[in-house]
């Protein structure tokens, strides 16, 4: 079980309110990702749930019980840290065994769980090594192993992939996803990378300055961002936000159109602009177009074979059904 409810949870460091009172519900078995720019309070929120920080107000319930004052070890949560936080003086086996040793678990059971975790994480051959002798990805797996053996109510991940290189990150992303499917345990995952959020989450929580901007499934956020912040944050390349006359046409302060929802033509279209940089990715081409009023540059995602070059004049037409409208406060107009 792993149902976590935050009620009016608040955190202050001195006089600075890092997290204004917020409510959040995390259901059992859900993969929840906290995402937001650095300094948005997502790690603090995770640490509040973990019990590594005291809340300044509000209540945290885990499986229906008030855990607000419960020390971290007693919350039945396991955490994987950004730096992995492996104990450098212990072998992999001892690292994984540590939480069980602290819980004074029966040694036979300990061994069984270690073997299982090691098998699941491809660590069997490395059990007698020390963290210093492992690669980044292996360390990451040890940290996960240490979390798994406790059979926690929920896993907490604090930017676990940010110390890995790009290729490994993709691999670990899938492994963590697989793990979630297999264990079916609640996972809370903190990242600043919206790609990780989109690919892994059942539910994304977008945070800014301690506020929850929007909660929803990846596609919900993609399709119906509640405000301009979420609109700009979710999706890559970023949504084009256009102000001025073009927006006024739609009775909005700002309109947004994703790069993939713009049609490009060299002959005719709604907006005219000049090609700046064209990034050819093979499968796609990202074209940055200058000279369009209210949004400069505007980014277009075109097919991989599109041949435009710097200085060409092009015409863009937004797909009407994918147009997002926002009011003066930046909120979505339905």
């Amino acid at each position: 079980m792993g149902r976590i409810t935050l009620q009016k949870v608040q955190k202050k460091f001195g006089d600075v309110e890092v997290i204004p009172p917020l409510d959040l519900e995390i259901n059992d078995g859900e993969f929840v990702v906290f995402v937001g720019p650095s300094g948005c309070g997502k790690s603090t929120l995770l640490r509040l749930i973990a019990g590594l920080e005291d809340v300044s107000g509000g209540q945290i319930n885990i499986d229906g019980e008030d855990a607000t004052m419960v020390p971290p070890a007693k919350r039945k949560l396991a955490m994987v840290f950004q730096s992995y936080a492996l104990y450098p003086h212990m072998t992999v086996r001892k690292n994984i065994a540590f939480p069980m040793r602290m819980a004074k678990m029966d040694p036979a059971e300990q061994n069984k769980r270690i073997e299982n975790a090691a098998a699941a994480l491809n660590l069997t051959d490395y059990l007698d090594r020390r963290p210093g002798q492992l690669s980044g990805g292996q360390r990451q797996r040890v940290a996960i192993g240490r979390a798994i053996v406790r059979e926690p109510a929920a896993f907490l991940f604090d930017e676990p992939l940010s110390n890995l290189d790009a290729a490994l990150r993709v691999g670990m992303r899938m492994e963590i996803g697989e793990l979630h499917k297999k264990l079916d345990t609640t996972m809370i995952y903190v990242t600043h990378d919206q790609v990780e959020a989109m690919t892994m989450a059942d539910k994304i929580v977008v945070l800014r300055a301690g506020h929850i901007e929007q909660v929803g499934s990846p596609l919900e956020l993609y399709r119906t961002p509640r405000n301009t912040f979420v609109a700009g944050f979710i999706g890559s390349p970023k949504m084009n936000l256009i102000e001025g006359a073009a927006a006024a046409e739609h009775n909005a302060q700002t309109i947004g159109i994703r790069p993939e929802h713009l049609d490009v033509s060299t002959t005719a279209g709604k907006w005219e602009g000049t090609v700046g940089v064209a990034e050819h990715l093979g499968s796609d081409t990202f074209i940055h177009i200058h000279g369009i009023e209210g949004c400069d540059p505007m980014t277009v995602r075109a097919g991989g074979e599109v041949s435009v070059k710097h200085g060409d004049t092009v015409f863009l037409t937004p797909q009407a059904e994918h147009l997002h409208r926002f009011d003066a406060e930046g909120l979505r107009i339905a």
Partner: peptide, 8 residues
């Protein structure tokens, strides 16, 4: 940055 109990 820590909890009350560790501070005391």
């Amino acid at each position: 940055m820590a909890t009350q109990s560790s501070r005391s």
